[in-house]
């Protein structure tokens, strides 16, 4: 697990072999939800040895309001994991697979700079500080994507923006509308103005009450919106179906621990709902697939795709 994040030269081919062995379509990529902490000078714990944890922020670069005022944008060529991410994308380019960079949505990136609890308290008590941090997060994401566009062009490049922290299990739709939407919308408009054709946005977790706001965020033509199992595919189609490919949403707990019949039925159900998406549907897990998932469960998902996954003429 450690090598997935630490060594692109090993991670890329290992992911390619895994992809071929299990028969899924997602090209190799490098990314994790705790992105940003390390890049801004904080500390992120990466898995090591037998540890199969995901990377996790353990020391945030922003500890006070004063830190927000003095926060500098890092150099995207040198900061944290980004040199390894560039190396990884060079391998994507050389091998003809999709080119990606994984970043947070603006709220998740801001939370990775100061911690979720502090950011939430600032939303209520120090809105200017919260907005300043969100602006910095927005600028950084744009800096990184601009670099990728310069280095790799736009033809095969799809930036991935993962947004678990703005879920309604954490913030209200009112706060989403006030704090997240303006920054996220502005960010996407600027990304698309760079010539990027498609943005993959992972609206992770419970986001039902945010969907009307997410639907105001341009994602490209088409964009790709992936959803957690807390949001129904039907809802996602209602909000994004005209402009985006919908991706989702097999519950990770089910994929790692369900019976073959349960997983097959759930995958079939996703496919049946997803085939109604006018711009297309991608069957995927609701979040990152747990590394302890039994291989047979992948076979069951593939079987559901082969049995039921033909799109209509």
């Amino acid at each position: 697990m450690a090598t997935v994040y630490s060594d692109p030269e090993k991670s890329y081919p290992a992911q390619l072999l895994t992809q071929r062995m299990y028969g899924y379509d997602q090209d190799p990529f490098l990314g994790y939800a705790a992105y940003g902490t390390y890049e801004f000078g904080g500390e992120t714990s990466f898995p090591s040895g037998d540890n199969i944890n995901a990377p996790c922020s353990i020391r945030f670069p922003v500890k006070s309001e004063k830190d927000v005022e003095g926060l500098q944008l890092p150099n995207p060529k040198k900061a944290g994991m980004l040199p390894r991410a560039i190396q990884f994308s060079k391998l994507q380019q050389q091998n003809g697979t999709g080119i990606s960079v994984v970043l947070g949505g603006v709220f998740t990136l801001a939370a990775n700079l100061c911690g979720i609890e502090k950011l939430c308290i600032w939303l209520s008590g120090e809105p200017d500080i919260a907005n300043k941090l969100l602006s910095t997060a927005t600028d950084h994401i744009l800096d990184v994507i601009s670099l990728w566009v310069d280095e790799f062009g736009t033809e095969r490049f799809i930036p991935q923006l993962w947004e678990p922290v703005a879920a309604n299990s954490i913030i209200s739709p009112r706060h989403f509308e006030r704090f997240v939407l303006p920054h996220q919308k502005s960010l996407h408009e600027k990304i698309l103005a760079l010539g990027v054709k498609h943005i993959l946005c992972h609206a992770c977790g419970e986001q039902n009450k945010n969907l009307p706001y997410w639907s105001q965020v341009p994602m490209g033509n088409p964009g790709i919106v992936s959803i957690g199992n807390q949001v129904s595919i039907k809802s996602a189609i209602e909000h994004f179906g005209d402009t985006c490919v919908i991706a989702g949403n097999l519950a990770t707990e089910l994929v790692v621990g369900g019976t073959a019949r349960e997983i097959y039925d759930a995958a079939k159900s996703c496919i049946e709902d997803g085939r109604k998406a006018p711009r297309g549907f991608i069957l995927m897990t609701a979040c990152e697939t747990p590394p302890l998932t039994p291989p047979y469960n992948f076979y069951v998902i593939n079987k559901a795709v082969h049995d039921c996954g033909q799109m209509s003429e």
């Binding site: 979720i116 939430c120 939303l123 008590g125 706060h175």
Partner: peptide, 14 residues
């Protein structure tokens, strides 16, 4: 009940 979210919970706890 979904009337309060984490920010409200946190400032009350504080």
């Amino acid at each position: 009940k979904g009337e309060y979210f984490l920010p409200e919970l946190l400032i009350s706890a504080r």
